[in-house]
Design a protein around this nucleic acid. Structure first.
Lengths: 236, 236
DNA sequence: ATAAAGAGTTACATTTTTATGACAATCAGA
DNA sequence: TCTGATTGTCATAAAAATGTAACTCTTTAT
């Protein structure tokens, strides 16, 4: 899984420097010299993360950030802002505009990389596109399919899940062996601060379980009374 | 387990900046613009940590810190002081007033978070999510599971505890080798302001013991007559 | 030795939490 | 537009957890 990072920075020297460092880490880079240029690029390829200079010639960085956050397609892209100023207010504004982190120039390449990785870890583990195999289940994010490999016969049966159940299972499998409260699940699967009843999670867990039962995988999604739910290979 | 942090800071911009960073780390935040306001808030909800500006409009920060330390209910709350000055004397005064740590402005959000986590680890071990292994028991807060590793065979059996018994065991293990009065246990495990009989603790201790006995771990939860209970590896 | 205080046990009514099925609204594709 | 799938909410059932009281057992002090 190659991670693509879009660098929006008007100064070619810095642009170059950043791109070089990212490439050395194995990231794919896209470069834009202006916000407009960046929007064009984004229309073609959706990057996995955006590095955005605060001060751009045409659109101010903050404006661009807001635009990213407004649109459904780009809403979830992690965003790190680069700023020369050390002004506290700038930082606040940046974070309010939806930035996941910010770095003050001048920064060391090592810091840059570290922050990028931290943000990616925080925002992306469940949306990585790697196949997850666990407890006799195989979930392929790319093809959006789930298979159950029965212990008896090695043939795998495809399981048909609704969109929400798929995301729920994906999330639970990505963070296996961990309890999640209903609130956490709502935040991370349904989206931040949606107004949905906690109990709704129960219903979806039920739907997921029902389907898993049909292929004899009943003990994978477990209830932790007083807390929430957990995906675990060891039966409780 | 959400950790609540009370931020006492009169400057709205900084208040905001801190709150944002804390929220991003998954902490719940309470904001007070003055010491008086803070005391009010504390009467309602007991925070898990207090971030306190040294210079406040009404009461000086140090005065507020002393008040926190004086009262039984707030005595154990970890406290980090924020100050603009780099004066050694201030630092000493702050630590003498009972502060657990000290940060000089301007500080980076990263430093802030790091210090908070360090203090929490030190002061509130039961909040940390680290696995605790003790006396042949292994408690994993993340997966919300407890295992008993018998001395004879190295295989571990999972133990099933109710929510309260789990928290009780977690607390006792986190503060091993220390006696806790029933009152303390009620305050820290059931939550503060609860109106529950002291004797109820006995019952839950009993339930916990019963389960531990079933896996041959009987002498871990010990009675200290006239005081309370203790988790100890050495039999009494 | 005996009473008093502290702790252990058990049973049980009550409350809380979770499971489950049904339903109406919405969405997506034909 | 029609049709079936999907989604969130609710009502109810079921299960589990909880707090209290009553009673017993142990230790301590007189």
């Amino acid at each position: 899984m190659t991670i693509t990072i879009l660098v929006v920075e008007d100064e070619p020297a810095i642009q170059e420097l950043i791109a070089l460092n990212l490439k050395r880490e194995g990231f794919m880079t896209l470069s834009a010299l202006s916000a407009d240029h960046a929007m064009q690029l984004i229309n073609n390829v959706l990057p996995d993360l955006v590095l955005l200079d605060w001060m751009l010639p045409d659109t101010p960085g903050i404006e661009f950030a807001r635009r990213l956050r407004r649109e459904e397609r780009t809403k979830i892209i992690p965003l790190i802002m680069l700023t020369a100023r050390i002004d506290e207010n700038d930082k606040i504004a940046g974070l309010e505009a939806g930035a996941d982190d910010y770095i003050t120039k001048p920064f060391s390449p090592r810091e840059l990389i570290a922050r990028i990785k931290a943000v990616l870890r925080r925002r992306l583990p469940e949306m990585s596109e790697e196949v997850i195999e666990l407890g006799g289940l195989r979930l392929d994010p790319l093809s959006h399919r789930v298979y159950a490999c029965s212990d008896a016969s090695p043939e795998s049966t495809e399981i048909n899940l609704g969109p929400t159940e798929f995301r729920l299972l994906h999330f639970l499998m990505a963070y296996k062996e961990r309890v999640h409260t209903r609130e956490q699940l709502l935040d991370r699967i349904w989206g931040d601060h949606v107004f949905i009843e906690d109990r709704t999670v129960d219903v979806h867990i039920r739907r997921l379980r029902k389907i898993l039962e049909s292929v004899d995988k009943e003990n994978l999604v477990q209830t932790v009374r007083g807390t929430g739910y957990r995906f675990s290979v060891t039966p409780s």
